[in-house]
């Protein structure tokens, strides 16, 4: 059942309408739990599109096994998706920095409030992001330190490779996940793949995880594939590799590879004169869970993140 969450007028003969698909179980009572699958806050992050499609397909084909309410929100930022833009076109703040939103603000803040109010009260929410166009990420769940005790056990059911428990920066207090966790709606942020693309194996991996979580919550009694045991880490074990100079990055390794300290990761080169500007090596032994995808780099651009052993 497709439902409108909020509808606002655009200047010339168009409305922006945010919609969700609500899938109901055959039997319900007042204790029936609700899960929200949310994506598309950043219009250039498309990995969640496959997850939404697959979850819709699986649930439609196996309706008898569904024991809870599933709300699927495939496009929180429809104008961003349509224009291949991270943010909401014409609005300069990141949509994921204005939650819980407000009534007396901009159109974007109104939309954020409607989304927040609609999801609030669910048993759990999965907010799916891709990386940006610059970086490729392995499937991971990101959790702030404050909510780790409650959320890490749920994250382990989601069939991801990595659970990153990060420090709670003040600026992140205006994300959808933080705002929902603050009001008691357990929200997990999934991050995977690369911007503007769909990585099929990652999407299907996360769908298996969502079904496993739903089974754990008593919302699904169908078959569930075995889930992998993720590495759980805090900030302290993550090493960042940034470009020491601007140029063109040519990787020497594959994403999701284990490297040794001092191992060759790639070069930053100058195509104008054939010079290697920076020869990049790994600062530690570990797993390259983030790797640069977009070749052109400025000084400081992120090249890799390595989870130290």
């Amino acid at each position: 059942m497709i439902e409108d969450i909020v509808s606002l007028g655009l200047p010339v003969d168009e409305k922006i309408v945010l919609r969700k698909n609500r899938i109901l179980p055959e039997c319900m009572d007042e204790n029936t739990k609700r899960i929200c699958i949310v994506t598309g806050t950043h219009g250039d992050e498309l990995e969640g599109q496959l997850v939404c499609y697959e979850m819709n397909r699986i649930l439609k084909e196996n309706k008898g096994h569904l024991k809870g309410i599933v709300d699927i929100y495939p496009a929180l930022n429809p104008l961003g998706i349509d224009t291949i833009t991270r943010g909401i076109p014409g609005f300069e703040l990141d949509m994921n920095r204005i939650f819980p939103g407000k009534k007396q603000g901009s159109m974007a803040e109104n939309i954020a409030l409607a989304v927040f109010e609609d999801i609030k009260g669910a048993e759990v929410c999965i907010d799916i992001h891709a990386s940006n166009i610059f970086l490729r990420e392995i499937p991971q769940i990101r959790i702030s330190e404050q909510t780790a005790a409650e959320l890490v056990p749920l994250a382990k059911l989601l069939n991801v490779d990595f659970v990153w428990v990060h420090s709670a920066a003040t600026v992140l207090k205006s994300t959808l996940a933080h705002s929902l966790n603050t009001v008691g709606t357990k929200t997990l942020v999934a991050e995977m793949g690369v911007g503007m693309r769909i990585t099929k194996e990652y999407g299907r991996q996360l769908c298996d995880g969502i079904l496993s979580l739903m089974q754990h919550l008593g919302m699904w009694d169908g078959d569930v594939a075995p889930v992998r045991e993720p590495i759980v880490s805090t900030d302290g074990r993550v090493e960042f590799v940034n470009a020491a100079m601007g140029g063109v990055f040519i990787p020497a390794i594959e994403h999701c590879m284990h490297v040794r300290e001092g191992e060759y990761i790639g070069d930053i080169v100058n195509p104008m004169n054939g010079q290697v500007l920076v020869h990049i090596t790994s600062p530690c032994n570990g797993l390259v869970f983030t790797l640069r995808e977009y070749p052109v780099v400025d000084e400081g651009s992120l090249i890799a993140r390595i989870l130290g052993e």
């Binding site: 007028g9 655009l10 922006i16 007396q104 159109m107 109104n110």
Partner: peptide, 8 residues
């Protein structure tokens, strides 16, 4: 010159 609905 143009405006959305619901905007301050």
């Amino acid at each position: 010159p143009m405006v959305y609905s619901g905007t301050v």
